[in-house]
Design a protein around this nucleic acid. Structure first.
Lengths: 109, 109
DNA sequence: GTAAAATATGAACATATACCGATATTCACA
DNA sequence: TGTGAATATCGGTATATGTTCATATTTTAC
């Protein structure tokens, strides 16, 4: 009976340990900024270089680089090197699905 | 002529309008703070008064009230009046499910 | 090796945020 | 109407955050 029970009003509430609280709040904080949402939204379909992101979204190169580091630290994006160019892509299906659903949810309202 | 040829290669991702971007980022920002996560986590199962929340989570009354107003503005919580007491409960199934899933996802790590 | 590119980093600044103490407001009821 | 309880609000403060400019680092081509 130790099986995972996904009932609606289920008692998930084992007390929140500090680490879980921190990780989860950090993850949501990553999605709590318009610039980072735009970047992740761009990465839905394909990979982009830093400069491509900056040009497409009309952002400074340093701004994009800073935010990518933020997202990288949270393992939300990864990159592939090709010469001097780094191609970034998303790296967390759960978070991307969450973002997609929430964008849809907000759009169709 | 407006240079607006950025929607050429994507079929799924309609461009993000400012309002959607704002609403979604605000929603995630609401979940990006440990205190608000703890409050919402408490409200998973049942309603609580402001003072009950403060006592249970060891927070100041003004802090709880402040955060509840934040969550209320985003329609993430609602309240029911009983005399001078206000009983708060969650008011957005989508957000609560998202929080629950993410907490699980982080816990079982 | 040097130069050019792409990207990362650091410092500075302005703004946003969260918390606190104190006070104001609202409501029920004698 | 006045009083106490519960909640909301305000001012102040410390911290966190996002952006920018300037510069450093990394990699490839020559």
């Amino acid at each position: 009976m130790e099986e995972n029970n996904e009932a609606e009003e289920n008692e998930i509430s084992e007390d929140l340990d500090e680490e879980t609280l921190f990780v989860v709040s950090q993850t949501f904080k990553a999605l709590g900024d318009p610039t980072r949402i735009r970047i992740l939204h761009l990465l839905f379909n394909k990979e982009y270089s830093v400069n491509e992101i900056a040009e497409t979204l009309h952002l400074r190169q340093s701004t994009v680089s800073h935010q990518l580091r933020f997202l990288k630290n949270l393992r939300l994006v990864k990159y592939r090197r090709a010469g001097t160019t780094l191609f970034y892509s998303h790296d967390d299906e759960h978070v991307m699905n969450m973002l997609k659903q929430t964008l849809d949810h907000a759009c169709h309202h």
